[in-house]
Structure formats: C-alpha cells, structure tokens
C-alpha cells in the first residue's frame, strides 16, 4: 500500500515517544525482551508490577485501536513447527544478546551505542539470511 510508510513513520514516532517517556519518567531503557525476560527468569522480580503494567499497555492499546481500522492481520504462519523454532530462537537470542529491536535498535542506536549498532547489524543480516534460506531455498515460509 502506498500509504504504508506514513503509518510506519507515525507508528515509529509513537514507539520512540514511549521509549522517551519510559527513560525520562522511570529511568529505564524500553527494551521489550528485557522487560518480558526479567519477569520470566525472575531477575526483574523487584520491578514486576512496573513491567507487567508496561506490557499491559502494549497489549491493550492495539485492542482499543482495532475497531477503527479495517483488515489488520498478522499474516502469521500456521506452521506450528516454524513458530516453535522461531519463538525459541527469539527468546534465547534476545536474552543472550541482552536486547532486541526495541532495546538495541531503537534505544541503543539512538544513543550511538556500539553494542546497539553491532547487535542490530547482526540480527538484520541474520534475519535477511533467514528469509533467503527458509523462503527462497527451503521454501518453508
């Protein structure tokens, strides 16, 4: 769709504003994998409510906005084997790297963090290779 980049920009500005509010309000870096991971492995027990409310906001707002938009879809694959493999890779990978698209990408690169640039460069190349291998060579996605 020709209007997609405008929505991308608007959405991006909102994502960055969320990160700015979280940083200047609570002194925290808005990284989705870190916020979720801290709840899963217990390392974020002291801030469990703060993390849970953040995630509640993330899950709630799309549900509130949904009635105003038509044809929103995730296009998610129905191949559960692919989803399990991908989920495990994303879960393990983001926690080993200590960040994902929001933490290393949005928050890291915007402070000119070397780790942010290295991580983002690597996961984009790996993701591109993944699509080439799994889509164009193996044909599983």
């Amino acid at each position: 769709m020709p209007m997609d980049w405008i929505w991308g920009l608007i959405g991006g500005l909102l994502i960055g504003t969320g990160g700015a509010v979280y940083l200047l309000g609570n002194g925290k870096i808005m990284g989705a994998s870190g916020i979720i991971g801290g709840l899963v492995d217990g390392s974020g027990r002291a801030t469990a409510l703060e993390r849970t409310l953040f995630l509640l906001g993330v899950a709630l707002m799309p549900a509130v906005l949904m009635p105003f938009f038509q044809g929103v879809t995730t296009n998610i694959t129905d191949d559960y084997l692919v989803l399990v493999a991908a989920g495990l890779l994303v879960g393990v990978g983001t926690r080993l790297a200590n960040g994902c698209t929001s933490g290393h990408g949005v928050c890291g690169m915007s402070r000119l963090s070397i780790r942010g640039f290295v991580a983002t460069g690597i996961y984009i190349v790996a993701g591109g290779l993944g699509v080439v291998i799994f889509r164009h060579i193996l044909g599983v996605i």
Partner: peptide
C-alpha cells in the same frame, strides 16, 4: 553473548516475522 544472541534472534525474527514487542502487541488478534 551479544554476537551469538543476535545471530539466533535474527534467524528467529526472519523465520516468523515476529520480535518480542509486536508479539505482546498482537495478543488480542494474533
């Protein structure tokens, strides 16, 4: 950890097209 983790994450991201933030955002319609 940063390098290995980012390679694994990228592969999973490409495979499903999902990363942690959007996974939570799509809970009500995924």
């Amino acid at each position: 950890k940063l390098v290995v983790g980012s390679v694994l994450f990228g592969m999973g991201w490409g495979l499903a097209g999902l990363c942690p933030g959007p996974t939570i955002a799509a809970l009500s319609y995924g």
